[in-house]
């Protein structure tokens, strides 16, 4: 049961950070999301995001910060394997599942669904 509790608390906490960016700092959603992604990338660069994933599970992998984390992970993994070219070739290697599925499902939805309101 505890993994669910920690996922709830950590994931909710990241969302509260986003809400504070909305309400207190008056950032637009696009600015807030960009900030969170860069923050996730930075945390992974200094080696702090992996411990967070081990601790909070989906609480760390579901928020958009995990997207920045995966981009850095892909770049660094292929940098290690293939040398400098890996920085370019590896960036999307892990995030492909998220981006590809979002593109495909959104496209199919646009074919089928009529806009509301």
């Amino acid at each position: 049961m505890m993994p669910y509790v920690w996922a709830f608390i950590v994931g909710g906490g990241i969302c509260v950070f986003g809400q504070i960016c909305f309400d207190v700092f008056k950032l637009t959603p696009a600015h807030t999301m960009s900030l969170l992604v860069v923050l996730g990338a930075f945390l992974d660069a200094v080696g702090l995001y992996d411990p967070l994933v081990d601790f909070a599970g989906a609480g760390a992998t579901v928020p958009i910060t995990s997207f920045g984390n995966s981009l850095v992970h892909g770049a660094l993994t292929e940098l290690q394997q293939d040398g400098w070219i890996g920085v370019i070739t590896g960036i999307f290697s892990i995030t492909s599942a998220g981006i590809s599925s979002a593109i495909v499902f959104s496209f199919l939805a646009a074919l089928v669904v009529r806009p509301k309101g």
């Binding site: 990241i14 969302c15 950070f17 809400q19 579901v62 958009i64 997207f67 998220g98």
Partner: peptide, 11 residues
């Protein structure tokens, strides 16, 4: 608000 925007579902 951010509760549905920040998770990957918001993306």
């Amino acid at each position: 608000g951010a509760g549905s925007a920040v998770p990957v579902t918001g993306f």
